[in-house]
Design a protein around this nucleic acid. Sequence first.
DNA 1: ATTCTTCTTGAACATTGTTCATTTTCGAGC
DNA 2: GCTCGAAAATGAACAATGTTCAAGAAGAAT
Lengths: 206, 206
Amino acid sequence: MNNVQEESLRDQKKNRRRLQILEIARGIIATKGLRSLKVRDVAEAAGCSVGSVYNEFGDFDGVILTVNRETVQALTARLRGVPAEDPVRQLYGLAETYLEFFAEHANLLRSLFEHRMEDDRPYPDDILQMVMDAFALMHPPLVRLLPDADDVKIALLSRTLFSAVHGIISLGLEERMVAVPPQMLRQQVEQFIDAHLVGLGIVPPR
Amino acid sequence: MNNVQEESLRDQKKNRRRLQILEIARGIIATKGLRSLKVRDVAEAAGCSVGSVYNEFGDFDGVILTVNRETVQALTARLRGVPAEDPVRQLYGLAETYLEFFAEHANLLRSLFEHRMEDDRPYPDDILQMVMDAFALMHPPLVRLLPDADDVKIALLSRTLFSAVHGIISLGLEERMVAVPPQMLRQQVEQFIDAHLVGLGIVPPR
DNA sequence: ATTCTTCTTGAACATTGTTCATTTTCGAGC
DNA sequence: GCTCGAAAATGAACAATGTTCAAGAAGAAT
């Protein structure tokens, strides 16, 4: 009995096309924003019919959600790369990395956080879970810094910090709103964390 | 010479309809979200043709932007109502009021912050200015608390704090993401400000 | 080679934003 | 009041875009 998954010619083509569609969709979202993503454009660029896009992803939301899924995966991978020796440094590193990633892929992250489903269908659970997992990357350093805090408190705190940093970055990069230059934004985020760590009693005031 | 603006019957009808259209659009956005707002629904509910909506607002974005304009005005009015005797209390009050307002009008605020214009037309300046004015409500208490800080520093700090609180609240109320119960969210915001004010040296650690 | 299954296609449809020639309404001058 | 010109309202037609599906093409199985 052969356990190796033989990939038929059919599956090969299918997979290749699937990846191609995603790449094209991601490119359009990243450069021109989610609102500019059109089925026909994607189909044409991928050299297939609109029907095939539907065949592969169910509906157009399916394409968007798959791109979003990959976005949060890429983000998490980047965040996992932050060194963990010093917990304080790690927290700064996480924020800084989030800022970098957001600045590089602003439209992709907006798609992740702002996309509303048609009707009121629920957002897929697995994506929500992945976002939570990203949140959770702050748990270990926080636990090391606040050994007396219980899990619930840590979970709350990490979510609060993540949300706060997310707010600073997403509004800061919103060119239409304020357009903070990235370098200044970085400083802004740093000072924010400075103050907050002092406030939590994690770091002595300078 | 008569300075009183005579309102012709024509203008009366026009104004009444304009208000009616806005009311209906606001209602739909508030209850079903921006994505569910359709010209034909609005026109039908207002008892007029779609053409009249365009006649009055130019395009559909015009309706949305007018609703957004009124949302930020209502928000600012609410924030202005926060007592200003004690600057620390005022900061807490501003955050708490923002939370209340956001919880009451989540979809309206999302429309304000997330709506993207067609093509890449710029977001109207006057709305951006109003949002900045809302930010600026934190200036006076911050100046009182940090008398040695210069204006730029104050402006940066107020924007940072606003954005951070906005992030905590908007993600916190995003039922699909995390769904923090409002009461817990309130506590979360409070603790956040606690820590930050301590970190800024404004309030002694407890 | 034949048959069966599955995928692909793209025309047709549905929904929704937008335009504009026509009609209606209003106000002004008589 | 009546008439006429300007302004507004209308809604059918158009345009853009998501969605479906019957028919055909392509691959797999025998």
